[in-house]
């Protein structure tokens, strides 16, 4: 819980001693030619070593947020900082390891997993030399850490969903990043594989002390590896004030996923800050210790009794 507490401390107004891993201040972004903004007024702070889930429906701006953090897009308004630097600097220094979704990758490339992983750091190497021993060694370590050594010689297009995620994660880790950013990591993995992958994420986080950003529309992916959750949806951001974030809105965004989840895990508390567009998910019994800050809303979802026809959600709002 220490990371979550660190996040809460920051929110209560105490000054931060170290630069946050990721810090967004009033970020707005609109794709050229689009009438509606993809993101509006997003402020978010992710402490070093924290595991943040970025949750929201498809088209809710999650991938845009990730692109801003990766420096692939520049915000129209507001600032994005990665360890106190601009995302472009962070990118050049290899601070953010990015794990893409499977559909983004050209699976017909005649490359083995090992070759793909080595390119992560090896693309910068001088063309007249082979891949230096140090780069190759880091790639091997990353493959081992992700449990991908066994299929490292297989073509990248021949992998299962779970193996593919491990390969992509190994490539991201091969540059020894400070932040690991995963885009929809559970898509295309069967439920058993998801549990294994969630365990792997926890293990890697514990061993390397990385900051994790997990983007997903699927709450199960988030809960598998996150301490805190930022809830992003167009609806959420179409409201600029705290009053906009009502339990009804949250219930609508989350109820479908949460109800199913509550059935597996017991009651969940979701609370979110309308101003900062971030929130927390706690498992059963791990509710916020010290009461909510102004503007916070709490949504409690409990599973109905068996045979209750799919469960139900109940919202409890606390206005500021």
């Amino acid at each position: 819980m220490s990371q979550a507490t660190a996040g809460a401390t920051q929110q209560s107004g105490q000054p931060a001693r170290v630069p946050a891993a990721v810090e967004l201040e009033g970020v707005g972004f609109c794709y050229p030619g689009n009438a509606t903004a993809a993101l509006e007024g997003v402020s978010l702070r992710v402490a070093k070593g924290e595991r943040l889930g970025i949750l929201g429906p498809n088209g809710g701006g999650k991938s845009t947020l990730l692109k801003l953090i990766l420096g692939l897009e520049r915000p129209d308004r507001g600032t994005v900082r990665v360890f106190g630097e601009s995302p472009e600097v962070a990118r050049q220094r290899g601070w953010v390891g990015y794990v893409p979704q499977r559909p983004q990758v050209e699976l017909g490339m005649p490359l083995s997993v090992r070759e793909v992983v080595r390119l992560g750091a090896g693309w910068r190497c001088a063309p007249w030399r082979g891949i230096p021993a140090g780069v190759a060694e880091r790639a091997e370590r990353a493959l081992e850490l992700c449990g991908a050594t066994g299929f490292a010689d297989r073509p990248i297009g021949s992998l299962s969903g779970g193996q593919f995620q491990r390969a992509m994660m190994a490539r991201a880790l091969s540059v020894e990043p400070r932040i690991l950013a995963l885009d929809e990591p559970m898509v295309g993995i069967d439920p058993a594989g998801q549990a294994v992958f969630g365990e792997l994420l926890r293990e890697i986080h514990a061993r390397l002390g990385l900051t994790l950003l997990i983007v997903s529309h699927d709450l199960r992916a988030i809960v598998a590896g996150a301490d805190r959750v930022a809830c992003l949806s167009q609806r959420l951001h179409s409201h600029t004030g705290p009053a906009g974030l009502t339990p009804e809105v949250l219930a609508e965004v989350f109820s479908h996923d949460l109800v199913g989840l509550a059935g597996q895990m017991g009651p969940l508390h979701v609370h979110a800050h309308a101003a900062s567009a971030c929130g927390h998910v706690h498992g059963s019994g791990a509710g916020p210790a010290g009461g909510q800050a102004a503007g916070e809303v709490v949504l409690t979802v409990t599973a109905e009794k068996k045979g209750g026809g799919g469960g139900g959600g109940s919202g409890e709002g606390r206005g500021g």
């Binding site: 692939l72 983004q104 490339m109 693309w123």
Partner: peptide, 21 residues
């Protein structure tokens, strides 16, 4: 030949290649 590594990385996955610099 000189650009084979960035080229192969780009060809495998353009967005990730950008994210890796």
């Amino acid at each position: 030949w000189a650009g084979r590594r960035p080229l192969l990385f780009w060809a495998t996955d353009e967005q990730t290649a950008r994210a890796f610099g």
